[in-house]
Amino acid sequence: MKFLADITVMPQKEILDPQGKAVKLGLHNLGMDAIDHVRIGKHITLEVDATDRTAAENQVRTACEKLLANLIMEEFSFSVVPIESEELTVKS
């Protein structure tokens, strides 16, 4: 069964995010002074074959811990949803 994972990798809160800081400055230059705490991370999507949702989540967690995020500087979160097979989406 195929699952779609939606993964978010963000710099840890205590680490200075100069990219977010620069973007905040840009937004303030646009007059949007009410905006604060801009932080920039990564959004990763991937498909994974697994017997069930728990197995899919375990694979995604391993991928995040081993490669997609560096836990010294980043944190990650993700959601996993089953991808409907083509047969199911075909309208009769």
Partner: peptide
């Protein structure tokens, strides 16, 4: 550092 052979990480330069 990515391999864990040395501690810490190397982040984007402060001035981007």
């Amino acid at each position: 550092v990515e391999a864990g052979l040395l501690p810490g990480v190397l982040l984007r330069n402060e001035n981007q």
